[in-house]
Write a protein that binds this DNA or RNA. Sequence first.
RNA 1: GUCCUCGUAGCUUAGCUGGAUAAAGCGUCAGCUUGCGGAGCUGAAGAUCGCAGGUUCAAAUCCUGCCGGGGACACCA
Length: 571
Amino acid sequence: MEYTIYKIKKDIIDLVVKAVEQEIDAQQLEVTVPPSAEMGDLAVPCFYLTKLLRISPNQVAHELKEKIHAGGIVKSVQNVGPYLNFFLDYKMVSKKVLKEIDKMGATYGSVKLSKTEKKKVMIEYSSPNTHKEFHVGHLRNVALGSVLVNLWRYAGHQVIATNYVGDIGSHVAKCLWALEKFHQDEQYPENKGKYLGKIYTEAVNEIDANPEFKKEADEVLQKLEHGDKKWLALWKETRQWSLDEFDRIYKILDIKFDKVYSISKMEKPGKKIVEELLQKGIAEKSEGATVINLEKYNLKYFLLLKSDGSSLYATSDLALAQAKFKKYNLDESIVLVDTRQSFYFEQLFQTLKVMGFDKPMVHVPYEFVTLKEGAMSSRAGNVVLFDDFFVQVKSQAMQETKKRHDDWSEKKTEETAEKIALSAIKFQMLKTGNNNVIVFDIDEALSFDGTSGPYLQYTVSRINSILNKEKPGVFKEINYNKLNTDLEKEMISKLASFPESVAIATSDFQPSHLTQYLFELAKLFSSFYQSIPILSSEAEVKNARLALIVAVRQVLTNGLTLLGIETLDQM
RNA sequence: GUCCUCGUAGCUUAGCUGGAUAAAGCGUCAGCUUGCGGAGCUGAAGAUCGCAGGUUCAAAUCCUGCCGGGGACACCA
């Protein structure tokens, strides 16, 4: 299905191409939106045509304006300086767009692909380390990744949402070492995942302060990798504590994975690959460690295996890449990891290429979350744990909800508050572009005003409140001519551009385009709601306006669903 | 030192495959109750788009250099 917005733009290009009366590259023509509505609904800048026609852009616009015959969706054309400005027949646009949204419902904005276009894509995200705390930095990854999964599915692709858990490595060894050394006979608290995080922090600090401890922790890692029964048993037990903790958090966030990989399973095959590379002479030994020389790609040396023979991320990542493609026969692998690892991934991908494993793999980087006081670090003990954060936002939402609905049951209040809190949290993580560092600000997170998840939910609730009082009539009876105020027109063109907005968010891996779009649509609705009566207007007008707000609700709902945010009937 | 990234209003950001008067949120100030939910709406003040060159009919946007913040660059993950 090709959306109306694309058809309209194509029609306009066709009109211009036809009027030019000679061979031109239609690709060079673009359709833009004029700065103000009085100037037109859409415009084509004529600069490209000046070279061809050898007259000034203003003249081009002037002459073409004469030759273009309005008709169909284009009501009239004007030339303003070097621009051809098109005025659309809004009755037709409204009808097409609103009917399209009504017909497609929850699929409006999505794409259906043919078998040949459809890709099988793995999106790997979250990928937390066990034995460590789950903080708001991890939250950004989860928020982004889950939306990317939704977006790529909406774009018609088959997506395997994957989590790659860091369940082994020196961080695990350090944690277990400290657990054994300092907490032998301790009673474990209820939240064991969190407890492990604390032990890990303690381990890091102890090792910092006493360099001789590093050796002890390294030995633990050696034992783990060589299958020492005692340590393995402790590892298995504690690993599960973390996994349970993650599952609890994913459940709160409503996140699901199709496949979970773990480093511990990739470590052995990884070592085997490294061994082969060494034999083939692709990798080499250096200071006891195994490395690959990537200097001719300007990627320095890449460390594949430590000198004591224990594995690194790189070791298991080589195996993971092969395992993924082998098991799923992927067309593409997308990995979401923060930007600090960009160079690492360049090295990793180049190494795979050198090995002859040349598959489409992309690393999607994003900036990390930091605090006003500086970077979060377990070492400094200044991490904002997801749990603590969630509790705060939720209690804020509880308060606000109680203020508005003191007659609600505790259960209803809590359920509503939880949805509001989640929307606030997710939206805050998603509204900033991937390349911007988020300086975590609890006050901002607790504010439900302005560009926020709750604001969008509130908009939907207001629409619901109207529609609960009166349903719109049947669609074919609607007189679209009645949607003639500027705000209504703006809303309709905004609704029409939803598919474009989703498409850009998808191809750029930037959910922030979508958050931006949704906020703008909600804002338009709020202005409209304030200034234009709906229920009290004359029957024909009312029906048209009801149809319009049904469409707005549908688009807001589709967008919010993509963001993993639930809408509410009342809040 | 090399590479990556960011620099737009007091603060947080949008716009960045070049196009018309740089757009929002927060904050500040002034307003909005006989109507559909004030988690809202309207208006005002507030920007030499870090600096300097270059390309172009046209630069916040592209190129180069510089300045400033953040990050990465071999046994951490």
